[in-house]
Design a protein around this nucleic acid. Structure first.
Lengths: 154, 154
DNA sequence: GCAGACATGGAAGAAACTTCCGTATTCTGA
DNA sequence: TCAGAATACGGAAGTTTCTTCCATGTCTGC
């Protein structure tokens, strides 16, 4: 963690998190500094890695990805090699939004977006259980997305 | 779903998803249309809800939110009222990134970001198990974030 | 108190945004 | 098939914004 953030930096981060298309001029006015200074500060936030990226959030339902599924995965063996091979394989599956190694009854938790249940069924049979070292999976269909991908509070 | 998306729209969506700060001029050149047309198309993508928002992705570790926890929640009763009350309460908890009603052994799945385990312990004791109608929770500490919040493929 | 490092805002040339408008293409119904 | 309407397109131009340079101001450690 290179530099520290003052109150203005934090405010800028929060504003850009809520609206990544804010112009430098608008941002500068909102946080009450000059456009030049604001521009330099924003650059620093990117260079120092405080902002990893700026992303347009595409509405899943609009692009036929309206079905969300959580999947718990248990591997055959809990060796570092098994984990590494599994992780390498799952990184190639583009429908996997999250993949986390967890402590508890499962080895991994997956968050997956597909078009519909039929779509998931096919993917589950053809790709998920075929992943290297998978002993079993437990599927949790999401029936209602109460909160999805909320902005970070800090 | 109002209008349909042609090949150019899809390309624009993918480009903006990967880099929400692309200027209209750059975007126009990449998809080989005029800046004016590109501007109008982009506007339409927003107006018709294909792009829900543009967000700066703040690096969690940089703002003391480096610890990720998945939590399964079971409620006392599975009535619509119980669900509604629970959902209303959880929407106020800002450290909850995801909250999904699921089918399976749990009622809800939560994705939570905190500073560290101690932080979570306090939150768990003071806020999670105190939520209305919660019978039990099961905590899965994330030991490694293999993939987190990957961009949507479509 | 001083020297160095750093942050700030004004200014200006360059670039981009946004809108208007005339033309071209597509769609629809007869 | 064709005419009329609706839609989409790109060029142009005024306005805004970006980006950089520079002089001034502020903070720190010696």
């Amino acid at each position: 963690m290179s530099a520290r953030l003052d109150r203005i930096d934090l405010k800028m981060l929060r504003l850009l998190q809520n609206n990544g298309r804010l112009s430098n001029a608008e941002l500068a006015e909102t946080v009450a500094i000059s456009p030049a200074t604001c521009h330099r500060r924003t650059q620093r936030l990117f260079e120092d890695g405080f902002i990893a990226a700026v992303r347009a959030m595409v509405a899943p339902k609009k692009v036929a990805k309206g079905t969300l599924v959580m999947v718990g995965v248990v591997l055959d063996r809990s060796t570092p090699e098994s984990f590494a091979i599994f992780e390498q394989a799952i990184a190639k599956l583009k429908f996997v939004l999250d993949c986390h190694l967890v402590a508890g009854d499962f080895d991994y938790f997956l968050k997956i977006r597909v078009g519909d249940m039929e779509d998931f069924n096919r993917i589950h049979g053809e790709q998920l259980i075929a992943l290297p070292g998978v002993r079993q999976t437990r599927t949790f269909f999401v029936m209602k997305e109460v909160v999805d991908n909320a902005p970070l509070e800090f």
